[in-house]
Structures are given as structure tokens and as C-alpha cells.
Simulated assay, not measured.
Amino acid sequence: MTEHALTPAAAERRLIELEKQLELATEMLKIARDKEVEAKHGYEAARRNAGFNKECPRVERGGTTVAERTEWIEDKAADEQRKYDIATAARQAAYDHLQTTREQGMMCMALLRSANTAYAMTTGA
């Protein structure tokens, strides 16, 4: 026999399942934030290292402009910037997943309340 999704027992099981998913989503967000910070530090270090590189163009009147120097530095740090961008997107996705799981939990709690009320009315409890 298949249990209906709106029975109090089924709603409680779903709520417990969502609680576990919420804990996992929270942990995944923490990990994603750590990776994002690590990637940001890597990107910033790559930019600094490029700026101090002996091959880095020197800004001078009639020669290299500040914009050209900045572009050279950014080009040298492009791989690290890409890693940082990917880590930022992953952190945002983890945050979105956490929010979705929270919203599902709230809907499940509302359904549980409704199911409990409906079952109480039909059983006279």
C-alpha cells in the first residue's frame, strides 16, 4: 500500500529528510565559501606577483600607459581570476541550494500543520 504524501506520518518523514538535506546544504555552503576565499587570495597573489615581475612593463611618459600595465598584469593572473570566478559561482549555487532547501522545509512544515489539523478533525481528536 502506498502512503499518501499528505498524511502526517509522510509529512513528518519528509520534514526529517529535509532537515538532513539542510544540514548537508549548510556544510556545502561553508566549503564553497572557503574555496572562494582561497581562490580570491590566489588571484590577488597572482596579480601582486605579476606586478612585481621583472618583465612587467614600467609606466612612463611616451611609453607604457597605466592601462597597458594593468592589462599585462590581468593577463598574467587570468587563470587565477578564472578559478576565482568559478569559485564565486559555486558559492552562489550552494547558497541558492540552501535557500531552496529552506523554502521546501517551510512548505513541508505548513503541509504538516494542515495535515495534522485535517486528520484531527476527521478523527475527532
Results as ranks from 00 to 15, higher is better:
Gly51Trp: 00
Ala50Cys: 09
Arg47Cys: 13
Glu80Ala: 12
Val59Phe: 12
Gly42Glu: 03
Gln81Trp: 10
Glu68Arg: 10
Trp72Asp: 01
Ile31Phe: 12
Gly63Leu: 07
Tyr43His: 11
Leu24Pro: 00
Ala39His: 01
Lys40Pro: 00
Ala87Asp: 01
Glu60Asn: 07
Glu71Asn: 07
Arg48Val: 15
Pro57Tyr: 13
Trp72Arg: 04
Thr65Pro: 00
Phe52Gln: 09
Ala78Ile: 11
Val37Thr: 04
Leu24Trp: 06
Ala87Gly: 04
Ala78Lys: 11
Lys30Phe: 09
Ala50Tyr: 08
Ala25Cys: 09
Gly62His: 05
Ile31Cys: 04
Gly63Phe: 05
Trp72Thr: 07
Ala67Asp: 04
Asp34Gln: 14
Val59Gly: 07
Met28Lys: 13
Glu80Phe: 03
Ile31Leu: 15
Asn53Ser: 14
Gln81Lys: 14
His41Ala: 14
Glu74Asn: 15
Asp34Trp: 11
Glu38Cys: 09
Asn53Pro: 00
Glu38Phe: 10
Lys76Asn: 05
Glu36Lys: 15
Glu71Leu: 10
Ala78Cys: 05
Lys30Asp: 10
Lys40Thr: 01
Leu24Phe: 09
Arg48Glu: 15
Thr26Phe: 14
Arg61Glu: 06
Thr70Gly: 01
Thr70His: 05
Glu27Tyr: 10
Glu44Met: 13
Ile31Pro: 00
Pro57Met: 15
Asp34Glu: 12
Thr64Ser: 08
Val59Glu: 08
Glu38Lys: 12
Ala45Thr: 07
Met28His: 04
Arg47Glu: 12
Arg33Glu: 06
Glu55Asp: 13
Ile86His: 07
Gly62Glu: 02
Leu22Asp: 05
Lys76Phe: 03
Lys83Gln: 06
Thr70Lys: 08
Ala90Gln: 11
Thr65Glu: 05
Ala67Asn: 01
Glu23Gly: 11
Arg47Thr: 05
Glu68Lys: 08
Lys35Leu: 10
Gly51His: 03
Ala45Cys: 05
Tyr84Glu: 02
Ala90Asp: 13
Arg61Phe: 10
Thr64Asn: 03
Leu22Glu: 12
Asp75Ala: 13
Leu24Val: 04
Leu22Arg: 06
